[in-house]
């Protein structure tokens, strides 16, 4: 399958790369930053595992992990919100840790094991966090939800592993999954509909605590 041909963004990126590669390097200057000749760029190979499946791609180095997932692998559950790491809609779990996939180059994830919302559960077999979001109405429009759920799953794991947080009174104590802990740890996921209290209740349900 040629991913470059079937993706609109892929076509644009691919065309740009070819145009640059076949022309005399141009001086790039929009008035900012030092003037620097644009390099000739060829696509580079990438192998990683996404939701348990080995995947291979050939990518312009500029491709973010988010764009690789959405535009090249067509895993469109992961959303592009701000594309600057401010909203959390693009949150995925890489090697067991949640990250903003928009602020990471796909090529930086050679060999990595990546879990997206599609890998957490299926419509027939929901992940407990997905089921809890449904039960507690942890969304309205749903755009931020895949990022919220990936983040929430990782947050509970971070609490279990004893990762400290800003609201922890005693740094040397084990954190517990209280409402204030979950709210602090979820602050990198913005919900413009304001479903925060229901998200906290869904998370509390999964850990068997009271929100």
């Amino acid at each position: 399958m040629n991913n470059v041909e079937i993706s609109r963004r892929g076509v644009i990126v691919g065309t740009t790369a070819v145009a640059v590669a076949s022309s005399v390097p141009a001086l790039a200057d929009n008035g900012d930053g030092p003037e620097m000749a644009a390099p000739a760029v060829s696509p580079m190979p990438l192998s990683f595992t996404v939701n348990g499946e080995p995947r291979e791609l050939s990518l312009d180095p500029r491709t973010t992990l988010l764009d690789a997932l959405r535009e090249h692998l067509h895993l469109t559950g992961t959303k592009k919100g701000c594309d600057h790491g401010q909203c959390g809609a693009c949150t995925v779990i890489v090697e067991g840790q949640r990250i903003n996939s928009c602020l990471s180059l796909a090529l930086m994830h050679e060999g990595d094991d990546i879990t997206t919302i599609e890998g957490l559960g299926t419509p027939d077999k929901l992940h407990p966090m997905q089921a809890a979001f449904v039960k507690h109405d942890g969304y309205q429009c749903g755009y931020c939800t895949p990022g919220q759920i990936c983040s929430a799953v990782a947050v509970l794991d971070e609490i279990k592993r004893g990762i400290p947080s800003h609201v922890q009174a005693d740094l040397n104590a084990k954190p517990t999954a209280t409402n204030i802990e979950m709210r602090e740890r979820m602050s990198g996921n913005i919900c413009r509909c304001g479903a925060y209290s229901n998200i906290a209740e869904a998370m509390a349900d999964v850990v068997g605590a009271k929100a």
Partner: peptide, 16 residues
């Protein structure tokens, strides 16, 4: 140092 780090950014950003 721990207090300063966890006062900054978000969990996702601190992981990376």
């Amino acid at each position: 140092l721990t207090r300063a780090i966890v006062a900054g950014a978000s969990g996702q950003l601190r992981n990376k």
